[in-house]
Amino acid sequence: MSTSGAAVSVATRARRRGSKTFGTAERHWLLWPPLIFFALLLVVPLVALFQQALTGQGNTFSEAVHMDVFAKAVERTLILAAVVTVVTVILGACYALAIAVGPVWIKVTLMAGLLISLWTSVMVRTFGWMLMELPTGALFWALDKLQLRSEPLNLYQTTPGMYPAMVAVMLPFAVLPVMAALSSLDGEQVDAATIFGAGPLLVLRAVVLPALRPALVSAGVLVFVMALGFYVTPLLLGGPSNMTLSGVINAQLNNANRADVGAAMSIILIGGTVVIYLIADRLFKVSERWG
């Protein structure tokens, strides 16, 4: 008797609470479209990729890992992603700080630069860098005019050639989180530090940077993960002899005609990215900040 009474009261309470917005069933329905979308666009291709990797002759995973090109590409990609992440986050933080505290003309210029680079396709921006880095391109022209260099540049299609372009392409993704964190920074805390005698450096070190730390970490993770799989910019500026992972995968699929090995490499890349993300999450609690 008493149990059924309790069950009834729980049921009524649930109904009452549910009726405020949506019933349980309706709430579940809202979940379906994104779930289907997720399944179709992410899980299905992954399964197909696995299948592809397993249909090959022998163990494609071990074959991929033992390929010299692949090992070199992994090393190159990791170093590229790490360096680009550090440089981009530092530059991005400076950029966002300049927008926050600079005079109006700096604010306007930097915001315009940020938005224009966000609205412009990566392809176009990479072509821009190509034109600059070509042996007798824009950079050479400028250096020549300044009489700093007379022989053509050897930058295009080299590993160092990828770095500045990668940083430029990634910069908005580092600036935006830091800008958001800066706009929610408590102005009274900055005032407090100033009144209690702190100079600009101590204010930055003791108040601003600690408040920005979560944003810097999430910006770093975002840039690093994106850089790991980046395709267009490294391919165009690094050239065929300095391929990053995505370039090597593409070569397997389209040139070497080894779709199975390409698929295995893709899975290793995805798995590695997930592992790195999980480690970062463990260390910095990134997901809590992204909700």
Binding site: E188, Q189, A192, V207
Partner: peptide
């Protein structure tokens, strides 16, 4: 010495 309305203590 100032006591701010929100106290403005440094959280970290």
């Amino acid at each position: 010495g100032v006591v701010f309305q929100s106290y403005a203590l440094f959280p970290h």
